[in-house]
Design a protein around this nucleic acid. Structure first.
Length: 231
DNA sequence: TCATTAAAAGTTT
DNA sequence: AAACTTTTAATGA
């Protein structure tokens, strides 16, 4: 467990307003860790003892349905806190967090949460803002599931991914971590076969380009139209 | 419209 | 070679 660099934290929203001395205090309590791609950070139902900050990489948050199907709830990008429902009063993690690619995380015991929110200006407001955004996104998806056709759901899932974790490449915006058709199926409530067929069709139209575990959206505007309301 | 099943081919380790 | 990912097609709800 190495000591992370204070400058890493200074740019991250919940800590942006803090001075170097305060960041030093926070780091004194932090434990840092590296998780390899595919590794689990915490499991659904496990006792929640820590909350986490993702410094680098991408985290997939997953839950298992009553029927035993795995569902991807959302993805976390670098700079975001996660595993914080526990700090907000839950005793167990409501979902599993898995590293989508190699990740660097900091974590703190939950008992520091109170101190952080009261002592550090901006910590509470910034984290509540991101929590609010996530809840909003999840609500949108519930509506989508009930009202939109599969093609629109997949199109919108891709748009969200490039919005949150997209990286500009030569030919468009690439999803910045490895993602399979199965993953997208788990995000949109369909099957990998349907996702594969949709992506193939879109690739023929020049809207996306994909390789194994890599997807680039080459024509985001067309994809917005595909995700639009019309049937 | 979409899931399921099956089969085949490509990729990575 | 084995494991994993992707594509395609046929069938049926």
């Amino acid at each position: 467990m190495g000591k992370p660099d204070a400058s890493l934290l200074a740019t991250i929203p919940p800590f942006r307003k803090l001075d170097p001395a305060q960041i030093g205090e926070i780091l004194d309590f932090a434990v840092s860790g590296a998780i390899e791609g595919g590794g689990t950070i915490f499991e659904e139902g496990a006792r929640a003892e820590r909350f986490y900050l993702l410094l680098d990489g991408h985290v997939r948050v997953m839950r298992v349905t009553l029927g035993g199907d795995q569902v991807i709830v959302l993805h976390i990008a670098a700079g975001q806190l996660f595993g914080i429902a526990a700090a907000l009063g839950h005793t167990e993690y409501p979902a599993t967090a898995m590293a989508a690619d190699p990740c660097l995380v900091l974590s703190w015991p939950n008992r520091h949460w109170q101190d952080f929110t009261t002592r550090y200006d901006g910590f509470a407001t910034e984290t509540y803002r991101t929590v609010g955004q996530r809840i909003g996104e999840m609500n949108d998806r519930v509506v989508e599931m009930a009202t939109q056709q599969v093609e629109q759901r997949v199109a919108r899932a891709l748009l969200r991914l490039i919005g949150q974790t997209g990286r500009k490449s030569g030919s468009g915006i690439e999803i910045d971590f490895p993602i399979t058709r199965q993953d997208i199926a788990e995000m949109t409530g369909t099957t990998l076969h349907t996702v594969s067929r949709l992506l193939s069709a879109w690739e023929r139209k020049g809207v996306v380009a994909s390789a194994r575990r890599r997807i680039t959206v080459t024509d985001p505007h067309r994809l917005v139209l595909l995700g639009g309301a019309e049937a």
